[in-house]
């Protein structure tokens, strides 16, 4: 992880923040605003079919063209941001919470608790990530809720390992020793003294992880396991468009570009955040 790498912070940007954070943040903000105000921004309804004007190339009426049901692709991408951002948020939030709690507890207490938790973790890691996620979703039935549950069950391991390894180092540091000598309880030491000092790495990782989760969400939707048609989701859109790839390239291309743009924004923001958090203290 570059999260704690000191040194050149690329402090070129405005107000002392790295340029990558500003650009990445702007891209994310754009998508968030589009998702929030989709009703106002989108020129058409995302699900209104207009079969006579199906598969039209980009034009002034339909800036990014239409799909095989004549739905406006631009509108579908804008509404799709709602679902994809939601996948990114919840797909990361639950693993983040679970993983950090487990990592903190395992690292701080050590001993039997640590052994048990780490064995569970290793068993989880032993399965290929995608296979396990797909297996869990298949059991629970396709849909976004299943996707979140599957990610929560599988995705926590990275956060747990990350946090645990840092807690292992920090719990022997003098300020934790001082806290124990002052008679603070374990809960206070973990939450007030350890967590704030280990969380930044996890946060930066969560940003990069969000990219992967959104891609995963799109892939699963593409496979029919995530968001269900006719919902406007970028993965679903690509899946629907692939049969027209040779005749109507715009149906696949633009949702694909939307994923790339959001992923780019997230990675840049993560990179910038790593510099800020890593060098600040």
């Amino acid at each position: 992880m570059s999260a704690t790498a000191p040194g050149d912070s690329g402090r070129s940007g405005v107000i002392g923040l790295p340029a990558s954070l500003l650009v990445g943040g702007a891209i994310i903000a754009m998508w968030v605003l589009l998702a929030l105000f989709a009703d106002l921004v989108a020129p058409y309804s995302p699900i209104a079919q207009d079969v006579p004007s199906a598969l039209q190339p980009p034009s002034l009426d339909h800036l990014l063209g239409t799909d095989n049901y004549g739905r406006d692709i631009l509108s579908r991408i804008i509404f799709g941001a709602r679902i994809d951002l939601q996948i990114g948020l919840f797909g990361v939030l639950f693993p983040f919470l679970i993983g950090n709690i487990i990592g903190l507890v395992a690292g701080y207490f050590g001993g039997l608790i640590d052994t048990v938790l780490m064995r569970i973790l290793e068993v989880t890691i032993a399965f290929p990530f995608f296979v396990l996620v797909i297996a869990i979703i298949s059991i629970l039935g396709p849909g976004l809720i299943s996707l979140y549950i599957a990610l929560a069950l599988v995705g926590w391991v990275s956060y747990a390992r990350l946090t645990r390894s840092q807690v292992l180092i920090l719990k022997n540091s003098d300020f934790v020793g001082a806290a124990r000598v002052l008679g603070y309880g374990n809960g206070r030491i973990m939450l007030r003294h350890l967590l704030p000092n280990v969380i930044s790495t996890s946060v930066v990782f969560a940003m990069t992880d969000m990219v992967l989760v959104i891609l995963l969400g799109a892939s699963l939707s593409y496979l029919g396991l995530g968001a269900q048609p006719p919902a406007a989701e970028w993965g679903v859109m690509i899946a629907e468009g692939q049969q027209f790839l040779s005749t109507a390239w715009w149906v696949c291309l633009f949702p694909g570009l939307a994923i790339v743009l959001l992923a780019l924004g997230l990675s840049m923001a993560a990179d910038g955040l790593a510099h800020v958090l890593g060098t600040k203290e």
């Binding site: 540091s173 003098d174 300020f175 020793g177 001082a178 806290a179 003294h193 704030p196 000092n197 203290e281």
Partner: peptide, 9 residues
């Protein structure tokens, strides 16, 4: 170590 004996945050 006076610096590491204080919580950096």
């Amino acid at each position: 170590d006076p610096v590491s004996s204080l919580n950096p945050k």
